[in-house]
């Protein structure tokens, strides 16, 4: 009956530590090769004078990190990218929070479930295709113009394709479901009785919103903002398709370094500067984000 075992009950030849290691090693080995080592390699790359391919002699340099000093026009591009992030995030918040409130307060039961799902469904479909679809709507004589001209036959074109606003529209469309999702998860938890209690204490609607709803929705608002701002400043495909010549962002500059200019070290340095910004954003908002970086 008894075996020569002395340790934990799970022991059977293999030690618990070995079992754990065997379970996690494949996943983290994979992540190391495909994510972490590439990031390290890119960091090294960003300090090289040129890509070390062929027999080219390369040296270490920090010059690429002075890029904003050496190429002043990039400062403008970087500011435009940050502004793009701010505009997109702000508009998403302005639409997303009321939408989340409407969803959680004006609907009940099964209807609400279905509507909630309809809101987040586009988020998991192909982003590229969704951006592409806007070109047909926003271009001159596009669907938007068709709709306007249905009411006013001689209206001038309001097609805004290949402009900064077009990029914002596309990005808001791409990321709005995220904001509604995070806000919804915050506001749906607000009990009706809390709002009734506030009203019973004499608070009018604006006060209830400012003093009760907004503070309770803040975690969702912040989480949504961070999770939108970060990918937007790294976007390149949306500005390319919707912005045309107006669509030069840090994202497209980085893309160019890797696909057109073949200045990989410079592209790496720019990627890392962007990564630094991303990490700062995450660090600042890490508390609000805790436990929210999951699916839903």
């Amino acid at each position: 009956m008894s075996e020569p075992q002395s340790g934990a009950p799970a022991r059977r030849g293999l030690s618990p530590g070995a079992v754990t290691a065997a379970l996690v090693t494949p996943a983290y080995l994979w992540l190391t090769v495909a994510i972490f080592l590439p990031l390290v390699a890119m960091l090294v790359f960003s300090f090289l004078t040129a890509a070390p391919f062929g027999n080219r002699a390369v040296e270490f340099t920090g010059a690429h990190y002075l890029v904003f000093y050496n190429r002043p026009y990039l400062v403008e591009v970087a500011l435009r990218s940050l502004a793009l992030g701010a505009w997109t995030t702000g508009i998403c918040a302005l639409i997303g929070l009321p939408a989340a409130l409407a969803l959680s307060r004006a609907f009940r039961g099964r209807t609400r479930e279905v509507l909630f799902f309809l809101v987040i469904l586009p988020f998991w479909t192909n982003g590229l295709v969704r951006v592409f679809s806007w070109t047909m709507v926003l271009r001159e004589n596009g669907i938007l113009d068709d709709i306007v001209r249905a009411f006013w036959a001689d209206a001038p074109s309001i097609g805004i394709l290949y402009s900064y606003p077009a990029i914002v529209v596309g990005l808001v469309h791409a990321y709005l479901p995220y904001m509604i999702l995070t806000c919804y998860l915050s506001v749906v938890a607000i009990d009706d009785e809390i709002l009734e209690a506030a009203r019973s204490l004499g608070a009018r609607a604006p006060v209830v919103f400012g003093k009760i709803v907004l503070p309770l929705a803040a975690p969702g608002l912040i989480a949504g903002s961070v999770l939108i701002f970060v990918p937007v400043i790294g976007s390149f495909m949306e500005p390319r398709i919707l912005g045309g010549t107006a669509g030069v962002t840090i994202g497209t500059v980085i893309e160019d370094q890797f696909t057109q200019a073949f200045n990989w070290p410079l592209g790496s340095a720019l990627s890392f500067i962007m990564l630094a910004v991303v990490l700062v954003v995450f660090a600042v908002f890490s508390r609000a984000l805790r436990g929210r970086l999951t699916l839903s």
Binding site: A34, I35, M42, G251, F258, S268, V278
Partner: peptide, 17 residues
């Protein structure tokens, strides 16, 4: 990181590595 870092950064890093 694989979820949170913009794909542009991860994609270019993979390309380099």
């Amino acid at each position: 990181p694989p979820i949170a870092i913009p794909w542009l950064i991860i994609g270019t890093a993979m390309l380099v590595f």
